[in-house]
């Protein structure tokens, strides 16, 4: 797990180096227009510093709830971004953790099942992750700690054209 994440970081850094190398004409558009947060052009891993300039010094309370909650996936009904009541305690535990660990960063990865078109599913996955983001916000989590990335139907947790697999794939994953 550890190794995999290291390898990914390395691959990201290298691919960026490569892209930078072959676009010397300045042809890249790194998302700095409109002052929007740039989720991709930086160092790749969440919480690497480019997201917010206002997080310094709010790491107080680190000890209050030091462990990342165990359950990091919640599931959704078909065609829905509503948080199911059974998962509210899971979200509340992540909210507690993030509130008491101001340096912690989480990427909310939104996923859908395979039915429907890919880019539309990308939008639906984002809607699910944003629904979780709003829930965390209401619970007092700083927006600077949370980032949303939709994978749409591209990374299924289970394979097969059946409802059992679909139910496992309609999810939001907390990636710390």
């Amino acid at each position: 797990m550890q190794l995999k994440s290291y390898a990914r970081t390395l691959a990201v850094a290298l691919s960026l180096a490569f892209v930078a190398g072959c676009s010397s004409s300045g042809g890249t558009q790194d998302g700095v227009m409109d002052g929007s947060r740039d989720g991709a052009a930086g160092t790749g891993t969440a919480g690497s510093g480019q997201i917010s300039g206002s997080r310094m010094g709010d790491g107080a309370g680190q000890q209050a709830d030091g462990r990342i909650p165990q359950q990091r996936t919640i599931y959704f009904e078909f065609d829905s971004d509503r948080i199911r009541s059974e998962f509210e305690p899971v979200l509340a535990s992540h909210a507690r953790y993030l509130r008491s660990n101001g340096n912690a960063r989480v990427v909310l990865q939104g996923h859908t099942d395979e039915r429907g078109t890919r880019e539309y599913n990308m939008a639906l996955g984002e809607r699910r992750a944003r629904s979780v983001e709003r829930f965390l916000g209401v619970q007092g989590v700083s927006p600077s700690q949370v980032e949303v990335v939709s994978y749409g139907e591209e990374r299924p947790a289970a394979r097969g054209p059946n409802e059992e697999a679909y139910a496992q794939n309609r999810r939001v994953v907390f990636a710390y």
């Binding site: 990201v12 691919s15 892209v19 676009s23 890249t28 947060r37 989720g39 052009a41």
Partner: peptide, 26 residues
Amino acid sequence: ETERPAIYIQNLASGQRVRATSFEGI
């Protein structure tokens, strides 16, 4: 490939490519 979605434009003959957009979100 950066763990965030981005749009790339790649020349098929040379393999050269540029990253066209990498805004936050989709």
